[in-house]
Design a protein around this nucleic acid. Structure first.
Length: 498
RNA sequence: GCCCCCGUCGUCUAGCCCGGUCUAGGACACCGCCCUUUCAAGGCGGAGAUCGCGGGUUCAAAUCCCGCCGGGGGCGCCA
C-alpha cells in the first residue's frame, strides 16, 4: 500500500444514525487510522425527497459523540470538496456529459408509464425485469427532435453485453458477476439530478478514495459502479463489503427491532466508548480474544481482511453488559462522575417521573458528594439512566416505603421493628463518632440485645433508612450521609409507625 | 423469478486459507456454589455445538471437492 489510504463514510441524511451505519463508519475509521490514512465524510443527499438538513446535523453530532473522527467533511472542508452531493451537481453534470459524448451513456425518453408496462410484462412472462434498451438506438435526429419538443429524459448507462466482472473483495474474496443481469441503468434522473450509482463513482474517484468499505447490501451494485469507473477511466479502488447486522429474528436490523439508532442508546444512558467497542465486535474479532478494548487498542488490532463474512445478530444483552464493564472498570471515577452528571443534566427527560425527581435532588448536591456516591454504587448500575435508582438513598431523605418494605415490616411485626429502630437510634445518639464501622458495630449489638438475627436487624434498618429491602451496603450509605441525616430518617420512620 | 453473499453452543465468535495438536476454545445470557447485612459486582464450577444436511477425497475433515437445504441481500428516475 504505497499510496496513502483514504476512506470515506457516506451517509444519507434521512434519519438518525443507524447502528449498522455507525458500525460501517467505525470500521472505516479503524481501517484508515490503522494504516495512517484519512477519513472523508460525505453527505449523500441526492434524494431530495427524503434528505433533511436537520438530519445531517444529527448525523455529525452522533458520529462525534461516538468518537468517530474525520479529516475532511462538510463541516471542516478539505481539498476535495464540496462534501455534500447536493453541492456537486455541476460536477456530475460534467461527467454525465462526458459519458454521453463517449457513447457510454444515452438519453432515454421512455415515460414512467412505459417502463411500468415493461416491468409488468416481464413479471407476467415470468422473466426478470431489465430495461429493454428501447432508446439505445435512437438516431441523432430523433434525439434532436425529442429534445426540441421538450420531452423529459433520463440518462442511462449503456451496459456492455456478456461481460463477466471479477471483484476481489477484501472481505468476501473473489466475486464474479455477469453484467447481463442488469439492463441499462439510469444515472441521471429526468429532473436532472444524478443517481447514487453514478455519483458515488465520481465522488470516490475525485476524492481519491482508495478503499470503499460499506455494507454488504451494496455488493451487487458494485458491478454497476465498476463499469462506470472503466468508462470514465478512473482507477478502481479496493472494495470491502461488510456483512449486515441482523435483529433477533435474523432479518435486517430495523425499527421493528426496537432501538436501532445511536441517538437512542445515548438517551438510554449508554457510553459512547462501550457502544463503539461493542459495534466493533459485530463481524470482527481481535486475534488475542480480548474484548474490552480502547479505541487505540482497536486501531492497533483492526484488520479488514479478518472481518467475518456471515451476518451478525445484534445482541442487546451483551451491549448492556459491556456498558456495565465500562462503568465499573474502565472509566476513572472523575470521568464517570462527569458522565453521570452530564446525563442527569441533559437527558433527564428520558427518565421516568420518579427518577427525574431524584435526578433533580442529585444535581443540588456538590459534585464531590456525587463522586463519592458514584464510587459506592458503580458496581450496580449498567447504564447512566439507572444511576438515580441505585443512588436514591444517598440523596433522598423523605421517601415512601416500597411494597416489599411494608411486607417486611408485617413479617417482623411492628413492635419488633420499633424496638430495633429505637434501640439503634439511642445508640447512635450517644455515640461519639458515627460512621460505617460504628454502624455495623451498633447494629450487631442491637441484634444481640434483642436476641434477633443480624439479618433481621439489618433489613429492618434498611427499610427504616431507605424504604427498600435491598440496595447498597448500609454502612457505606450511613458513612456518607452522616449522623444527622441518619438520625433524621430513623425518627421519621418511628413517627410514621404511629 | 433471476443474480449474489452466507451457514461452528440461544447470541457474538476462535479455529477453516496451511487437513491430525478440536474428547471444538473464549465472551454474553442461563444454572449451581462461594463471598455477603440485602441487591449488584466478584470468585469458582456446570450445562449448552452430531461444526446446516447428504455424498465424495483421505489413514485422518469443522477444515478440501460436489450436490441439496436454510437464511440474508440485490434486482428502482432510494441510498
Amino acid at each position: 500500500m504505497a499510496e496513502k489510504v483514504r476512506v470515506r463514510f457516506a451517509p444519507s441524511p434521512t434519519g438518525w444514525l443507524h447502528l449498522g451505519n455507525a458500525r460501517t463508519a467505525i470500521f472505516n475509521y479503524l481501517f484508515a487510522r490503522h494504516h495512517g490514512g484519512e477519513v472523508v465524510l460525505r453527505i449523500e443527499d441526492t434524494d431530495r425527497e427524503r434528505s433533511k438538513k436537520e438530519y445531517e446535523e444529527a448525523l455529525l453530532e452522533d458520529l462525534r459523540w461516538l468518537g468517530v473522527e474525520w479529516d475532511e467533511g462538510p463541516d471542516k472542508g478539505g481539498p476535495y470538496g464540496p462534501y455534500r452531493q447536493s453541492e456537486r451537481l455541476e460536477i456530475y453534470r460534467k461527467y454525465a456529459q462526458k459519458l454521453l459524448e463517449s457513447g457510454h451513456a444515452y438519453r432515454c425518453f421512455c415515460t414512467p408509464e412505459e417502463l411500468e408496462a415493461e416491468r409488468e410484462r416481464a413479471k407476467r412472462e415470468g422473466r426478470p425485469y431489465r430495461y429493454s434498451g428501447k432508446c439505445r438506438h435512437l438516431s441523432p435526429e430523433e434525439v434532436e427532435r425529442y429534445l426540441k419538443e421538450g420531452r423529459p429524459y433520463t440518462i442511462r448507462f449503456r451496459v456492455p453485453d456478456g461481460r463477466e466482472l471479477v471483484l476481489n473483495d477484501l472481505v468476501k474474496g473473489e466475486v464474479r458477476f455477469n453484467v447481463d443481469d442488469f439492463g441499462d441503468f439510469v444515472i441521471v434522473r429526468s429532473d436532472g439530478t444524478p443517481v447514487y450509482n453514478f455519483v458515488v463513482v465520481v465522488d470516490d474517484a475525485l476524492m481519491k478514495i482508495t478503499h470503499v468499505i460499506r455494507g454488504e447490501d451494496h455488493l451487487s451494485n458494485t458491478f454497476k459502479q465498476m463499469l462506470i469507473y472503466e468508462a470514465l477511466g478512473f482507477p478502481m479502488p479496493k472494495f470491502a463489503h461488510l456483512p449486515i447486522i441482523l435483529g433477533e429474528d435474523r432479518s435486517k436490523l430495523s425499527k421493528r427491532h426496537g432501538a436501532v439508532s445511536v441517538r437512542q442508546y445515548r438517551f438510554d444512558g449508554y457510553l459512547p466508548e462501550a457502544l463503539f467497542n461493542f459495534l466493533t465486535l459485530l463481524g470482527w474479532y481481535p486475534k488475542d480474544g480480548k474484548e474490552i478494548l480502547s479505541k487505540e487498542e482497536l486501531i492497533e488490532r483492526f484488520d479488514i481482511t479478518d472481518v467475518h463474512n456471515a451476518p451478525a445478530v445484534f445482541n442487546r444483552e451483551k451491549l448492556y453488559w459491556m456498558n456495565g464493564v465500562y462503568i465499573r472498570e474502565v472509566l476513572d471515577l472523575d470521568d464517570l462522575t462527569d458522565r453521570v452528571l452530564e446525563y442527569l443534566r441533559n437527558y433527564s427527560e428520558h427518565l421516568d417521573a420518579e427518577d427525574r425527581k431524584v435526578a433533580e435532588k442529585i444535581l443540588d448536591f456538590p459534585r464531590e458528594f456525587v463522586r463519592e456516591v458514584v464510587s459506592k454504587v458503580r458496581d450496580s448500575f449498567f447504564t447512566l439512566k439507572e444511576f438515580p435508582k441505585r443512588a436514591k438513598p444517598f440523596f433522598v431523605d423523605d421517601f415512601e416505603p416500597s411494597e416489599e418494605a411494608r411486607k417486611h415490616l408485617q413479617k417482623v411485626g411492628t413492635e419488633t421493628a420499633r424496638k430495633v429502630v429505637e434501640l439503634f437510634l439511642e445508640k447512635v445518639r450517644s455515640a461519639e463518632t458515627f460512621g460505617g464501622e460504628e454502624f455495623k458495630k451498633l447494629a450487631k449489638e442491637v441484634a444481640k440485645e434483642l436476641k434477633l438475627k443480624p439479618g433481621v436487624v439489618f433489613k429492618t434498618l434498611r427499610v427504616a433508612l431507605t424504604g427498600e429491602t435491598q440496595g447498597v451496603a448500609l454502612d457505606l450509605l450511613v458513612d456518607l450521609i452522616g449522623k444527622e441525616r441518619t438520625v433524621g430518617r430513623l425518627e421519621s420512620f418511628l413517627a410514621r409507625l404511629k
